[in-house]
Simulated assay, not measured.
Amino acid sequence: MISSDGGLLLPVSLFGDIWPEFGWLSAAVERATGWGGLIIIFIYSFLIAFALPGVSEIVLLAPIDLGLSQTGRLGIIMLVSGAGKAAGSVFAFHLGQEVKQSGPVLQLFQNSWFDLISWSERRTVALAQQWGYAGLAAALSVPGFPDTISIYAFSVLEEDYLKFALATFIGSIGRLIVTVIGVGAVSAFI
Rank of each mutant, 00 (worst) to 15 (best):
I173F: 04
G23H: 04
L116S: 11
D5C: 04
A27T: 14
F42N: 02
S118V: 04
S26G: 10
F46D: 04
F50N: 01
E159A: 12
S89I: 00
G174T: 03
A126W: 12
L140V: 03
D160F: 10
D5P: 02
L157V: 05
P104I: 06
L106V: 15
L10V: 06
A165F: 08
G103M: 10
W35C: 04
S69T: 15
A28P: 02
A185H: 07
D115A: 14
N111Y: 13
L8C: 07
W24D: 03
G184N: 01
R123A: 15
L74M: 13
F91E: 01
E121P: 00
L10W: 09
A49N: 03
H94Y: 14
E21Q: 14
L95Q: 01
G88W: 05
V125N: 08
L108V: 00
T124S: 14
G67E: 12
L176R: 10
F114L: 13
A86C: 06
F154N: 01
T124G: 14
S69H: 08
K85Q: 09
V99N: 01
D115Y: 12
L66S: 06
L47S: 07
V186T: 08
A134D: 00
R73E: 09
E30F: 11
A185Q: 11
I43Q: 00
L9M: 09
Y161K: 13
G132F: 00
W35G: 11
I58D: 06
W113E: 13
G88C: 06
G16L: 04
A167W: 07
V156C: 11
D115Q: 13
S120A: 12
Q129Y: 02
L60N: 00
I177F: 10
A87D: 05
I117N: 01
D5I: 00
F91Y: 12
S141P: 05
V29L: 08
